[in-house]
Design a protein around this nucleic acid. Structure first.
Lengths: 185, 185
DNA sequence: CCTTTTAGGAAACATTCGTTTCCAAATCAA
DNA sequence: TTGATTTGGAAACGAATGTTTCCTAAAAGG
């Protein structure tokens, strides 16, 4: 099932909810119509399951990356690198389901919209907390406004995913991520 | 006609190409079916006309903002403020047609995709040129890598538009824009 | 090996959407 | 005022899409 949702993720990330047809989803998930509707009530249910699966996986991967570092600053840099890599090459071109869904926010129902907003909020909150951690452990200047710097970094991250859609190399995205560190230099 | 395209812009920006139906476009543009198909060959033609109209208007507005300043640094700050304002409040929630289209890039035809890419490239090129201008007139440090800083600022801008979709106040977005100036401080 | 269960997948159906057709109403120009 | 032109907008049509139904084939279990 996780495999099928991973395949559905590619279709939804590339094409958005409305641009993804049941035919494309079926083909990618390698499931017949009967099986698909056995497992999911409808297209919206597939989308919500895919979104949940994606958010959970990304949160886990991000936590692992961040937890591998010690200081607030190192954690932040690891986080930026994590997003730079995700936004590069073919993975970058596929895009991020949360960002894609954010641009379609007006067309999603309340449940889906709430999930997207919550996912975005968690990342921004994590950024702010990491900045504060860095300020507490001395790796980041205490005079920075954690809220505003987090907001700026958050925009960099979302921007990486949008720009990544047009196809960018890892080296370039990594440079951008490193440059973004100037926001908390 | 410009008025009708402005109305179509709202629908396409909020909902994306696939999420926008002919019924919604007709209602927003206040045109009957007969008139709509008299003016445009099909939905795709409406979209392309809307995109052209939007890109031209935004380029013009941006040029005006930037040309009102003198130093490279002031021009960059004006540019960032321009985007911060666009990404705020109800206009921000509506979104940017270019960013929305960038996330749907995989589903657009070659002509539309080329227009989106060109629009994005122009902004990034302008950023780089303004950084170099600032480095030449002494308002921006000469040792900065214009290419990389432009890339980072470009991500901030795209990120502002994505985040703006979730509804953010002008004050907050202005703070982020001002913070982003640290990238060329 | 046989029975039960599950999945494949085509066909049918319903709905939505985009486009075309057509005619009445409104507007414009002489 | 009349004739010509344009627009409104409903209906019809074709296509695409999402969902349901149904039956065969494959897989699983006893």
């Amino acid at each position: 099932m996780d495999t099928a949702l991973s395949k559905a993720l590619v279709v939804f990330s590339e094409r958005g909810y409305h641009g993804a047809s049941l035919a494309e989803l079926r083909a990618a998930m390698k499931l017949a119509t009967g099986s698909l509707y056995k497992a999911f009530a409808d297209k919206r249910a597939i989308f919500l399951a895919t979104l949940d699966h994606y958010i959970a996986r990304r949160d886990r991967q991000l936590r692992e990356r961040v937890d591998a570092q010690h200081s607030g600053r190192d954690k932040l840099e690891a986080l930026l690198q994590f997003y730079a890599e995700s936004a590069s090459d073919s993975e970058g071109r596929r895009g991020c389901l949360v960002v894609t869904s954010a641009t379609e926010l007006a067309t999603l129902d309340a449940e889906a919209a709430a999930k997207v907003r919550a996912a975005l909020r968690r990342v921004e909150t994590l950024l702010r907390d990491l900045i504060r951690l860095g300020q507490a452990d001395g790796s980041i200047r205490a005079e920075l406004d954690a809220e505003i710097v987090a907001g700026a970094l958050f925009c960099v991250i979302q921007g990486l995913r949008v720009v990544g859609k047009t196809g960018r190399a890892k080296r370039e995205m990594t440079s951008v991520a490193k440059q973004a560190a100037a926001l908390f230099a």
